[in-house]
C-alpha cells in the first residue's frame, strides 16, 4: 500500500496539521518509505492470535464514586492562551 499526495493531504487534514505543497511533496516519499518498511508485518502468520490489550497482566481498578477533584478553575485556566469570564475562548464557530 502506498499513499499519494491527495492521501497525504487527507491525513494532514485528519491530524489537523497545515501542510504546504512543498511539505506534501517532501512527506510523500518519507511516508511511503516508512509504510513500505512496516509492510513486512503482513508476512507474519497471526492466525488465532489475539491482539495484545494489556502489556503486563494487570486488572483495571475502579475508583469510588466520590467528588475528590474539580473546583480548581484557576488551575484549569492558568495556561490558557485566551480565557474570558471563566471560559476558554476560541475563534468563533458558526453553526
Amino acid at each position: 500500500m502506498s499513499v499519494d499526495t491527495a492521501t497525504v493531504r487527507h491525513i494532514a487534514r485528519l491530524a489537523r496539521i497545515a501542510v504546504s505543497d512543498g511539505e506534501v511533496e517532501a512527506l510523500l516519499p518519507e511516508l511511503n518509505n516508512i509504510l513500505g518498511w512496516v509492510e513486512q508485518l503482513q508476512e507474519v502468520d497471526v492466525a488465532g492470535v489475539e491482539p495484545m490489550t494489556a502489556v503486563i497482566p494487570n486488572r483495571q481498578r475502579l475508583r469510588a464514586d466520590e467528588v475528590s477533584d474539580g473546583a480548581i478553575r484557576e488551575q484549569v485556566l492558568a495556561n490558557a492562551p485566551v480565557a474570558e469570564h471563566g471560559f476558554f475562548a476560541v475563534p468563533k464557530v458558526i453553526e
Binding site: 497525504v8 491525513i11 485528519l14 511516508l31 508485518l41 503482513q42 497471526v46 489475539e50 491482539p51
Partner: peptide, 26 residues
C-alpha cells in the same frame, strides 16, 4: 502523527494497527 493517523484510519486499521497488536502478542 501522520503515520499514526494513517494506520488507524478507516480501511487500514486491521492491516496495520490490529496486525501490529497481534505481532506484539507474538
Amino acid at each position: 502523527i501522520m503515520i499514526g493517523t494513517y494506520v488507524l484510519s478507516a480501511g487500514f486499521y486491521d492491516a496495520y494497527f490490529n496486525q501490529a497488536q497481534k505481532v506484539r502478542a507474538l
